[in-house]
Amino acid sequence: MLLPLTLLFFSWGSSQVHAAQGNESCSTSTQRLQLGTYQFTSDCDTMWWCNSSNICDWKGCRRDEFPFGYWENATIPEGCPRGSFCPDEEDSCQPLLAVGSPCQLNRDDECEAPPDFQDLADNTGLGRNVNGSVCLNNVCMWANVTLGLPCAVENVPYTVYTQDTEFIDIVSRDNCRLGLYCDASQKVCMQMKELGESCQADKECQSFNCLATGVCGKPADTPSHVAFWVYIICGIAIFGGSA
C-alpha cells in the first residue's frame, strides 16, 4: 500500500506554528512523531534542529530533494552522499546502519543494503523497501525472506484527512521478497494473489488493490478505457445541442 504522502503536507503547516528559530531555546525531550501523520517535529522551525544543548541550530543535511519551509534565498543544506543518510532530525549525515541496528520509522534508506540488493530492491514506487533494505518495528532488516519462512510485519495506522472527514489508513509492511507478503495471522511469507482471488488487504494482491468485495482488483491507477460508441453518442449530443 502506498504511504499517504498527502498527510505530510497537511501536518507540516500546522506543526510549524510558533516554532523557535536559530539560537533560541528548545527541548530535545519534546521531539516526536506527530500522532496520526508520524511526521517528525520539534520545538524548532523548519530550518533548525534542537541540539544537545537545547538550542536551535542550523540543519546540517536535508532528507528531501525539495525541502519545505525555508526562507527565500536561504542556503539549503546539502543532501547526504552515497553510503550515508540524513536522519529525521537533519542534524548531520550518518553512515548507513547494519542489519539489526535501530532505525527511525519508515526510514528504509537508513539501512545498509544486502549484497544482492539488485534482486531484492523494489523499483515499483510502492515503497516496499529501499535497495532491498527495510526498517520494520524500528529495526534494520533485509527484504529477503522466502516463501513459507517466518517474517516480520509492521502495521502503522495513519490518519487520512479529506475535505469533509477523516479516516484511518493502515499501512502494512514486511520483509518478504518481492512477489510475497507476510500473512498477518501465520507470520510467514505467502504468494501474492492474482486478479479475482479473495483477499483481506491490499498487500495480498499483486495489484496492491483489494476491493471492498474482498477480491483482488486491477491496480488503482489503471487508466479507464471508454468504448468508441460513447464518443459517437457524445459527439451527436454536442452537435445536436448546438444546432
Rank of each mutant, 00 (worst) to 15 (best):
T41W: 01
A98N: 14
I232K: 15
D64K: 08
L3Y: 15
D169E: 13
W49R: 05
D119G: 05
N209R: 12
I233E: 01
N209I: 11
V160N: 00
N106H: 06
D122K: 13
M1S: 10
E90N: 11
H225F: 07
S42A: 12
L105T: 12
L35N: 07
N155T: 15
G132T: 08
F167R: 10
D109S: 05
L136R: 02
E78G: 10
S15V: 06
Q186D: 13
S11A: 10
E204D: 03
G217L: 01
I232R: 09
T41C: 02
C216V: 07
F167A: 09
G69F: 01
A220G: 05
C140D: 07
V145H: 03
E112I: 09
F85I: 10
S101A: 15
C80P: 01
S92P: 11
P81T: 02
C86G: 14
G60A: 00
A20Q: 15
D164S: 14
C50A: 09
A220S: 08
L3H: 11
V130C: 05
L120T: 06
M141E: 06
V134K: 00
Q34M: 04
E89P: 01
N123Y: 09
Y231C: 10
Q39I: 12
P102D: 00
G83S: 00
C182E: 00
A20P: 02
T37V: 15
A201D: 08
R128C: 00
F10K: 14
A184D: 05
G79I: 07
L136W: 03
C111I: 12
C86Y: 02
L120A: 02
N131Y: 12
K187D: 02
T6L: 09
M141C: 03
E78W: 01
H18N: 13
C93G: 08
T159I: 11
N209Y: 05
C151S: 01
Y158W: 09
V134M: 04
Q206Y: 07
S29R: 03
F85M: 08
V226L: 11
M192S: 11
T222I: 05
V130W: 15
A237R: 13
Y158E: 02
G100M: 08
L3N: 11
F208W: 04
S172I: 13
N73E: 11
Q206E: 10
I168P: 00
M47C: 14
N138S: 15
T146W: 11
P95E: 06
F239M: 13
C61Q: 03
P95L: 15
T213K: 14
D43N: 00
P102T: 12
C103K: 14
L8S: 05
G60E: 00
L149Y: 09
G100E: 13
I76L: 12
S198W: 11
G125N: 06
F239R: 11
C93F: 03
N131S: 05
W229A: 03
G241E: 04
P114N: 08
P114V: 14
N123T: 15
P223L: 00
Y161T: 14
L211A: 12
E110H: 13
Q39G: 10
T222D: 08
C103R: 10
N73H: 07
V215L: 04
W71I: 12
S29W: 01
D116G: 02
C176V: 10
E204S: 03
Q104N: 12
C56W: 04
T28Q: 07
I236Q: 10
E72K: 07
Q16Y: 06
E194N: 13
E204H: 04
G148C: 03
D45Y: 06
G83M: 01
